[in-house]
Structure formats: C-alpha cells, structure tokens
Design a protein around this nucleic acid. Structure first.
Lengths: 114, 114
DNA sequence: TAACTATATAACCACATAGTTATTTTGTCA
DNA sequence: TGACAAAATAACTATGTGGTTATATAGTTA
C-alpha cells in the first residue's frame, strides 16, 4: 500500500514550512491579532502597531499571498480581515505550550495581575 | 481594568514568533516528522534526511533550545526524541488548512494514491 | 483639471540563518 | 596509551528578509 499521511514529501514540507514562516514574525502576529477583533484598514493597522505604512503594506501582502488575510476595497481604503481562522487555533496551542513550559519551570503564571 | 488575554505584549509575541520560526524550516520539520516515529540517533537522522552531520546537529541544537526535542546520551551516541507533542497538533491544523485551500481551488486531493 | 489622501511598490541596507568545510570534543575499544 | 567513531562547534558563505526612505498608483474632492 502507498503511505498517505505517514510519508511527507519535500514539496509538502515546503508548503507547511511556508505557513509557519508567515507566523514567525512578531509584527505579523500583531497584525493578525488586531484583525482578530475585526476588519481594519491599512491606516488603522499602521496606527495600532506603531509601524510604518510601507512596512505594514508589505506584511499584509505577504499574509494575503499566504491566504491568511483577505482584502476588500472601499473607495480610497483597503480593508483587511482574517481569511484563515485556524491561525488562532495554532496560536492557542503555542501559547498553551509556552504556559506549560513556564509553569514547569516554577516561574508560574499568576492568575491575577500583580 | 487590566487586559489579560486580549492584550498581547511585545515579549509574548516574540516568544510565540520564535516557536513558529522553529517550525518554519523544511529540514527541521523533516527531523520532527522522523522523531514522531520514535527516538533516533544523530547518525540515523543524518542518514534518513540525506543532510550532513553538522547541519543536523545544528538543527537539533536549535530544536532543543526551543524545548521541542529532548536529548539522551548513551555511550557514544546522542538520542533525540520529541519533547513537545503539541507540535503535531500544529502541523495537523496547517495540513488541514492546506488541504482545504487546495480543495477550494478544485485542485482536490485524491483520497487514494494515483 | 489640481490638490489631497490612502495604499502599493521599488530600491536599498542591515541582519539573521541554512548550509558547507574544517576542527574539536567525547566516548569506545584494541 | 593510541586509533577510531559519534557528535558538537567554529568559521565562513550565500541567501532571505524585516525595516527604511523614496516614489508611484489610484481614488476622492475641490
């Protein structure tokens, strides 16, 4: 029989790696986190992140090329929104992993702010 | 009030990004996929991947520093194994996303090999 | 039309990183 | 001890990429 899931060819690994690479930059994560609250224009994202407009446009283009955000034009503005909600499942898992690791280092999270 | 989950500070974003970055390289994914089948020595990984020993050692060191693999010394050998099984949950989600995307482009997956 | 605003793109720089070759460390065995 | 094998590390190169500044494109409004 031919392996289906157990065997991963190089092209597939490349595809998966590319997805993760899109998520491996703090500024892009910041943008995605912002869009989690709803659709935003480029200018809104620029202001919220404190980055520059060309930088944000570039990141948005990358996220869009990777299928992670969607673009909508309205008059003069470009509105971006999340196209792949599974992103946040990924982040949740990573965050849980980080929390678990910190906990096991007895540098534990405090549930209430102090 | 102080935001707890809705607000992600830069340090947290950096931590999350670093995790994703470890998963954003095809060779490292290949190694992790290999280790999914069980503990392997460096030499075994080198042979299975077709890469060089120093390259594999470097990737393993990075994965270990990121808490994703564990190292066990036995005589002359170094055995590595998965330390963070959630990795595969992440990959499953990404793979599902890719499959869905391909499907929606009617370049559909065939369930049986052809 | 001209002035203005929003966004995209181009060109460039500094830095990170995957891979290579050469070397060192560490453990085994004769 | 010396010869050998496994793994780690160092030094280097080539390439990728995040950020910047400058410019171009496109839509709006007067």
């Amino acid at each position: 029989m031919t392996p289906v899931v157990t065997e991963l060819n190089d092209a597939a690994l490349e595809l998966i790696a590319r997805r993760f690479k899109l998520l491996s930059d703090p500024m892009r994560l910041k943008i995605l986190h912002l869009l989690h609250h709803g659709e935003k224009s480029v200018t809104e994202i620029v202001e919220a992140t404190g980055s520059t407009q060309p930088n944000i446009s570039k990141h948005l283009a990358a996220l869009r090329a990777g299928g992670m955000v969607r673009r909508r034009s309205e008059s003069n503005l470009a509105y971006f929104s999340i196209a792949a909600p599974f992103i946040f499942d990924l982040c949740d898992i990573v965050c849980a992993g980080i929390a678990a690791e910190l906990a096991s280092q007895h540098k534990h999270f405090s549930t209430s702010a102090d």
